[in-house]
Structure formats: structure tokens, C-alpha cells
Design a protein around this nucleic acid. Sequence first.
DNA 1: GAAAACTCTATTAAATTAGTAGGGTAATAA
DNA 2: TTATTACCCTACTAATTTAATAGAGTTTTC
Lengths: 136, 136
Amino acid sequence: MLSKKTKYGLKALAYLASQKDKKPVQISEIAEKENISQKFLESILLSLRKTGFLGSKKGKGGGYYLLKTPEEISMIDVMRVLEGPISMVPCVSLNFYERCEDCPDEQTCSVHMLMLQVRDSALEVYRNNTLRDIIS
Amino acid sequence: MLSKKTKYGLKALAYLASQKDKKPVQISEIAEKENISQKFLESILLSLRKTGFLGSKKGKGGGYYLLKTPEEISMIDVMRVLEGPISMVPCVSLNFYERCEDCPDEQTCSVHMLMLQVRDSALEVYRNNTLRDIIS
DNA sequence: GAAAACTCTATTAAATTAGTAGGGTAATAA
DNA sequence: TTATTACCCTACTAATTTAATAGAGTTTTC
């Protein structure tokens, strides 16, 4: 399941991407328009800022804005920051690899084999989609 | 993340599929060989039996066995039984569809759009793999 | 008739999620 | 300088899921 954090983060990014100009948008506006708890959204936007997707401006007329164009923001990077691993098992994760304790041999593990394919197909989708692609 | 239930279920199915003959295999044997808690495995195998993947035989010399050949068992069916929805959000689920409360319009929702693609790519992987394919 | 195996119910411990609540600080524009 | 808005921090919680564990009970077969 996709976490609400990821869902809300994506919606917020999409909202910012569909702005006409590059003026900062207030948290409260995004929260209201996208039906998101403002406090929860606050923490999500903060993490998107710390990971280089968003810039922020304090004070009146402040808010959040995209640091890159929507075309430059790949879903693969966004998903890794918001959701974490793309893989469904740590033993096929590129960025969060971990051995399975119970598994004597990854090479012959049927779960490993299947999940590798699932990971690759998901990676491809995320790689092929930028923020531009998912706004309508 | 893939649940342990699914992981163990897949391993058990793979174990049964790689048997030479069709004789029932005891829970205790599978649990030991695949490093699974026997009691937990018990409940997993039970659900696989109730959903038509496995048959069982009681008494001495009893155990579990596949009801179909490994070629006939598609990962898409197994995953739906063990893991549940393939989709990461209910609003793109074929078998477990639910509307998102917060979302005014699925057609223009960016999350919906992305997750549809992820679902389809996962479906394709599961559809293209039978139990035969994932045993080495 | 007893061993072997499946079946069922109930409980639990740990972890995660998705918040809520509330405090305060810092920067900016009018 | 004052209002606005982002930033930062702590703590709490309710619900859910997961991954078992425990133990009793039933059925079958040798």
C-alpha cells in the first residue's frame, strides 16, 4: 500500500507544478485544495525541501515552490524519498539492500526471482514518469 | 512491503512444486526446510487449501500437495490470495476497488494516473509467471 | 487404538501509520 | 514594527497490521 505521506506528497508536488507562475504557495492553500491535514502536510513538505525538491520562503507572501521544472523531477527520486524502497523485499533493493535471514541462497530463491521482476517493472514506470507526465 | 505470509506461502508452494512425486508433504518438513514457524505456516497452507491451490491428507503419511501442475498456477492468483490487492491504492484496484475520500476526481488525479501504470506493470509480471517459472 | 496430521480459537507483542496538539522561533514584506 | 508565514520540536494516541504463540480439538490411517 502507498502511504498517505507519499500520496499527499505527490499531490502537493503536482499542485505546485500546475501553478502558472513560480510564486511560493502557502501550506494552508495546498492543504485546503487537496484535502490534507495541514500539520501532516507541513512535515511532508519539509522533507521535500530537505531533499532538494522544494524551496521555501518565509514571511508574508512566502510558501513553497519547485526548485526544478516538472520535467526534471523524476518519479523514481520522489518515490524513494517519500515512500522509501521501491522493492517489496529488502533482498532485491538497490538502495536499501538487506539479506533475508531465513533464506540460504538468493540465487535460487523463488521469492527473490519474482520480486526482482516486480521491482524492475516498477522502476521502469517511475523512471519513465516525471512530474510533468502525471499532471493533467 | 511483501508480507511474511506471502513470502512463506510462495516458498511453500515452490517447495511443493519441486517435489519429485505427488506425495503429500508434511507441514513440519516444509517449515524446517524453509525456516518458517510451523504454526504460522499451518495457517498459510490452510488458506491455500481453502482457495483451491492445495489439497491435504490427514493421518499418517498425510500432508499437503499441489492440486494443479506448477505450470497451471499463475502468480497473479497466488498473490491475490496471499497478499491481497496488487494495487498500491484502492482507487486503481480491479478486485478491491474503493473510492478515495479526499480525491474529487480520479480522472485528473496525479496519484491515480501513476499508480495505474504501476498496477499494470505488476499485473503483467504476475500474469507472465507461473509457479514453474519461479522454481530454479 | 494410538500416532500423526490437520483444524480452530484466542491471545499477544511489536511495529507502523496517520495523524493531533501545542509549544515556540525565525524571516520577510508591507 | 507588526502581521504573516515558514520552520522546528516534543509528546501523545488510536487504529491497524503483522507475525507469531499457545493450546485444545478433530480426523484419518496404519
